[in-house]
Design a protein around this nucleic acid. Structure first.
Lengths: 295, 295
DNA sequence: CATATATTTCTTATGTATAAAAAACAGGGG
DNA sequence: CCCCTGTTTTTTATACATAAGAAATATATG
């Protein structure tokens, strides 16, 4: 049966909302909370009931008022807020990248389900979705085969990435001054500079910024297939480097500087400069990944 | 519970194998049949048992001999040889392309399962796999949305297709004389000429040839992401034109000629000619699809 | 001993069940 | 009449069950 992770996540979020209120203040309507929390009203009501049961709020006729600051310890732990399907993703990545699997390994749905402690349905669904990352392959009426997180994989990945990203970057040369993208590029540059200034402490924040940066560039001319491919890239970087921390700080610092150079090139509107900066960054990212895969 | 479509398909295939034997001749071993039929020995044995039950073959100690020509009417009908998941694909495509769905339509797993007469699990699994075609999108904790088989879709599709195909075609310019691909190209040219010579009767065979041709070009330098994208293209052409037969003969004749021109360009090894022929074909294919979508 | 068949075990494909979440519906107050 | 809360209905996420198919193991035969 379905887990109540949505409820727990909403509950945790609600704690933050309540913290902004004063004692005795009235809570927003269920509908308003629904919008804020991004869940259904059904779940909002369940959260409110939970809050009332804990004495954090009190129902008075048709309104609810806050009567006690919620404690941080009331929060549900992070793991319980992740849908089973999300947990499976992490488990699988760990299984894969920790080296339990070498290229050609057969993947057994039942065995994975046992190992991860979930139903086979979930594993099966996950594998179906995961197929798009190009790391596994299905054989009719049999299981899946793990193709390996190999240099070949990285090269094929980057061949496509280069095509897509160069395509988007070049379009900046013809982008009118008035485009709202330029403003977002400015914001992006600021974020990079900020991170760079505090790189020693915050270098781990780069992964997420990287993904946002590349998605922004792509957004000049949206294409669903390119966007979908960015999920592949994001997955690779997110998980691979999560299990391979070597030189992380240095790696990220270099990448930030390359991003800044690319931003400058984009703003110059000069196709040749854009090409150069973009290719430089992609080449460097590819080499870094390859080196890291080869150990 | 699982359907026995594998058995039925193997049974039909076995009929063809038996037809090549003489009365009283001994059948190949179970293992040999397994390899020929491409199924497990378990299934082979089930098929053999079925044949024996119908008196087509007879077991004599540890060998089986053929004792009666199987009738064509013994064959299981085509529908029964398709796995449920394959049937769902067809049903869904029909539902989508017949116009039951307009852009923005919400897709309801339960309803589709009812409509198609299958379990929700199957529909769910199908939708997960189908997601890669870029026509549907999932919303968290809610159903799917059909994004529409629109002009926008076609344009995004062709933008990628152009990048990928030009990339592969250009690589031919540097392909050594000795590459086995050239021979395959020759075979491909012959197949095109043959089809062209008999175009009035066989124009419907083009769809499959088209897919093979483009996959061959891509095969110069394999890339799993490009290959996966070709599934998207194949799906679009296969199903879309299956429900939109207007000008099919003329369309296909034009495409065949463009393919032949591209083959010639590839063999010339001249990048400029290759570019021109490739772009010409893709542009024409795009316009044809767009016209067809717009009706 | 190699290869064939018989038997057993394991895995996948597909169906059904159910709690959680979403959505729809209904009455009530400002 | 709009928006709020209470209630009911649908739908999804997840678990579990089982027949078909694949794979492994055992046994037989030349």
């Amino acid at each position: 049966m379905r887990t109540d992770t949505t409820f727990k996540r909403a509950f945790n979020d609600m704690i933050e909302i309540i913290r902004t209120l004063d004692l005795g203040e009235e809570l927003p309507s269920e509908n308003a909370l629904r919008a804020q929390l991004g869940v259904s009203r059904t779940t909002v009501r369940k959260v409110l009931a939970g809050m009332a049961a804990r004495g954090i709020i009190i129902s008075e006729g048709h309104r609810r008022i806050m009567c006690e600051q919620p404690q941080q310890k009331e929060r549900y732990p992070k793991e319980e807020t992740l849908a089973i399907s999300e947990q499976v993703e992490t488990s699988f990545m760990e299984w894969m990248l920790r080296g339990d699997a070498s290229p050609g390994t057969e993947i057994n749905e039942t065995e994975l389900a046992r190992k991860f402690g979930v139903a086979t349905t979930i594993v099966r669904e996950f594998l179906n979705r995961f197929q798009k990352y190009g790391l596994i392959e299905k054989r009719q009426n049999a299981g899946w085969v793990f193709k390996g997180f190999t240099a070949g994989f990285a090269l094929e990945l980057f061949e496509i990435r280069e095509m897509f990203e160069m395509r988007s970057a070049r379009l900046f040369a013809a982008l009118p001054d008035g485009s709202p993208i330029w403003k977002q590029i400015q914001v992006m540059r600021a974020a990079h500079l900020e991170l760079l200034a505090d790189i020693d402490a915050r270098y781990q924040d780069f992964s997420e910024l990287d993904s946002r940066f590349h998605r922004l560039i792509t957004a000049v001319a949206p294409n669903r297939f390119i966007e979908s491919f960015q999920d592949v890239i994001a997955m690779v970087f997110h998980y691979h480097y999560q299990w391979n921390k070597r030189d992380e700080r240095a790696r990220n610092e270099v990448a930030i500087k390359e991003h800044l150079a690319l931003i400058e090139a984009l703003e110059s509107r000069n196709v040749a400069s854009i090409d150069r900066a973009c290719r430089l960054h992609l080449t460097s990212a590819r080499e870094t990944l390859l080196r890291s895969i080869m150990q």
